[in-house]
């Protein structure tokens, strides 16, 4: 709370309107919201099945995979960005093939930002969903099976609704982490206004020159994300 108070006290309230309407601010904000949302989508699509594998099946090497999933949590994001470059970069393991085959490169693109954010935010989703799966009674899936449901049907129609709160919580954490992502993004996707410059990158660079501008950008990021999270929370509270 205190750091937030610091931002509020130090904010240049008099020049706030002009600063907010600078075109760069809106572009960065829009890009941040877009990429964080897309990254959350990517995490959901890849992370929920992975969590299911970890939480419900006993495949060999499960412990090892679970440990791997948490690696982005302990890895400094900058190192994560370098790792991504080594894989998806122009000379990377996969990137070189993508480039020569499709003429398609990830670094320095908005897609690259999404990849970097998804990489860093994925553990939050997987861990939340796996926890929810472990807490959910697996016997409901058995009941569904005796009623003729295939594993996929049981997952979709029974398990997923049961763990929905866990998935939602994971998605929120994931989104918040993606929104604040800095290190992996600037390393992997670079910094270019309108294309890869998200709010945290804009804040960091503003800090190099103009503390007031950095504070304004930070406040915008904080206010928008808090507003969105609060709105989502109200919505769920109404449902459940």
């Amino acid at each position: 709370m205190l750091p937030l108070a610091g931002l509020l006290v130090r904010a240049p309230w008099t020049t706030l309107p002009e600063r907010l309407t600078e075109p760069g601010v809106l572009a960065a904000l829009r890009l941040s919201l877009l990429t964080a949302t897309l990254a959350t989508g990517v995490c959901l699509v890849l992370g929920v099945p992975l969590a299911w594998l970890l939480g419900r099946t006993g495949f060999p090497g499960r412990r090892f995979v679970r440990a791997l999933v948490t690696v982005p949590l302990v890895l400094p994001p900058v190192v994560g960005g370098v790792a991504l470059l080594l894989v998806f970069g122009r000379r990377g393991l996969v990137g070189e093939w993508l480039d020569t085959t499709f003429g398609f490169t990830l670094p320095f693109t908005t897609t690259g930002v999404v990849v970097a954010e998804a990489f860093v935010a994925m553990p939050f989703l997987v861990i939340s969903v796996e926890g929810a799966l472990r807490a959910a009674d697996a016997r409901y899936e058995e009941a569904a099976a005796t009623l003729g449901a295939s594993r996929w049907t049981a997952f979709r129609r029974v398990t997923l609704p049961l763990i929905a709160p866990g998935v939602a919580a994971g998605a929120v954490l994931c989104w918040a982490r993606a929104l604040g992502e800095f290190g992996a993004t600037i390393t992997f996707a670079g910094n270019f206004p309108g294309r890869t410059q998200t709010m945290p990158l804009a804040v960091y660079l503003a800090l190099e020159q103009d503390l007031d501008a950095a504070i304004v950008l930070s406040l915008v990021l904080v206010v928008v994300s808090v507003a969105i999270l609060a709105a989502l929370r109200d919505k769920w509270a109404g449902v459940t």
């Binding site: 058995e142 009941a143 099976a145 005796t146 009623l147 003729g148 449901a149 295939s150």
Partner: peptide, 9 residues
Amino acid sequence: PPEHRHIGV
């Protein structure tokens, strides 16, 4: 497998 066994539980 249970889903093809035609049992009710």
